[in-house]
Amino acid sequence: MSTEEFEKLHEMYRSLYDEVKLTPERAQRCQGEERKRIVRDFDERVSEAEEVTHLQSQRALLIQGTESLNNASKSIERSQRIAAETDQIGTDIIEELGEQREQLDRTRDRIINCTSKIRSRKILRAMSRRLVTNKLLLSVIIIMELAILAGVVYLKFFRK
């Protein structure tokens, strides 16, 4: 029902209400056939008023149903927006996790590379220590041989 129809029904209801309100006074003043006619009119007016009341209650129910439907539609729209936002956030998180995985893979490769470099350094240090130790031993052996050779030359040529 449109607003105009509702206004017409409201005016009709008002006029019926006013008439029904005055009917008992008129019925007391009249007698016979006119009284029966007034009572009949009163009954007709009451049934019309009941019909108008019924129409108004149906209209109110219809308006309430429409409002509920509108609220449900708005709620569904909000839910769809939230679902779209959640989907976008999920996509962003997946992309970020992919980037972090790549970073972790690169970091793992660097650690493996560093570990192999550290092992290489340990091996080089061990080799340089052995080299220094070998040179020292060789130097001590050469010095001892020179000392022995000097002792033999001294004994052979200068000791007589």
Rank of each mutant, 00 (worst) to 15 (best):
Q28M: 15
R29Y: 07
C30S: 15
C30N: 13
Q31A: 15
Q31D: 14
Q31E: 15
G32C: 01
G32L: 01
E33D: 15
E33S: 13
E34W: 07
K36P: 00
R37V: 08
R37K: 12
R37E: 14
I38M: 05
R40V: 13
D41E: 09
D41L: 03
F42I: 01
F42D: 09
E44T: 07
E44R: 07
R45I: 05
S47L: 06
S47N: 07
E48S: 12
E48V: 05
E48A: 13
A49G: 03
E50F: 11
E51H: 12
E51F: 09
E51Y: 12
E51L: 14
T53P: 00
H54K: 09
Q56P: 00
S57D: 08
S57M: 08
Q58Y: 01
Q58E: 12
R59P: 01
A60Q: 03
L61T: 03
L62E: 03
Q64M: 04
Q64P: 01
G65I: 00
T66M: 06
T66F: 04
E67Y: 03
S68G: 07
S68K: 01
S68Y: 01
N70G: 01
N70I: 02
N71A: 09
A72K: 05
S73M: 10
K74I: 04
S75C: 06
I76G: 03
E77M: 06
E77I: 05
R78A: 08
Q80W: 08
I82G: 00
A84I: 04
E85M: 06
T86D: 12
T86N: 13
T86C: 09
D87Q: 12
D87R: 07
D87P: 00
D87V: 02
Q88Y: 04
Q88G: 10
I89S: 12
I89A: 14
G90C: 05
D92H: 02
I93D: 03
I93P: 01
E95P: 00
L97C: 05
Q103W: 02
D105Y: 12
R106S: 13
R106E: 14
T107N: 12
R108H: 10
I111N: 04
C114T: 15
C114I: 15
T115S: 11
T115F: 09
T115R: 10
K117V: 06
K117W: 08
I118H: 04
I118M: 07
R119E: 15
S120N: 15
R121F: 14
R121V: 07
R121D: 05
R121C: 10
K122P: 00
I123Q: 10
